[in-house]
């Protein structure tokens, strides 16, 4: 049986979560490996949440926020971008492939983009296999 990764998705309430809803309304299929957690803003996502996910068995972590300039909270997504960059460096130091953490901007109107990037991400993690630390 092929490897089925476990992926946690942190989605901001205003853009990415609404984009995921639109993917649903449009009946765009994507793999069920990804389980969403809604936060109000991608800027709420503490790097610790991401590490916590990897520590508890995640093979990948997806973060969805509003496009630059579109953040409902003006600039929360910019903080998210910096923190994700930092977390990627941290992952690398820990021997975790940084590609296991993906940040994407998905607007409320981009249902198709949500389905596409999520499908790609799941496939990428499938190729990478289980988390290095657990192999």
């Amino acid at each position: 049986m092929s490897f089925e990764p476990k992926i946690v998705a942190f989605l901001c309430n205003w853009c990415a979560y609404a984009g995921a809803d639109l993917a649903g309304v449009s009946r765009l299929k994507y793999p069920a490996n990804i389980i969403p957690i809604k936060v109000l803003c991608s800027g709420r996502i503490d790097p610790e949440f991401i590490l916590h996910a990897f520590r508890n068995g995640a093979d990948g972590v997806f973060v969805g926020g509003c496009h630059p300039g579109d953040c409902h909270y003006i600039k929360g997504n910019y903080y998210a971008r910096r923190r994700i960059l930092l977390t990627k460096k941290l992952l690398k130091e820990m021997g975790i492939n940084e590609r296991r953490l993906r940040l994407e901007w998905v607007s409320a109107t981009e249902g198709r983009k949500f389905a596409t990037v999520v499908s790609q991400f799941v496939e990428e993690i499938r190729q990478l296999g289980p988390l290095e630390a657990r192999k």
Binding site: A20, D21, L22, A23, G24, V25, R27, L28, K29, Y30, P31, A32, I35, P36, A115
Partner: peptide
């Protein structure tokens, strides 16, 4: 949210497991 982000986008077996989670 087990409709927009689950039943409408996944196949049966996967969807049930995901809905539980």
């Amino acid at each position: 949210n087990i409709r927009e982000q689950c039943s409408w986008v996944h196949e049966s077996k996967d969807a049930t497991e995901k809905a539980i989670k």
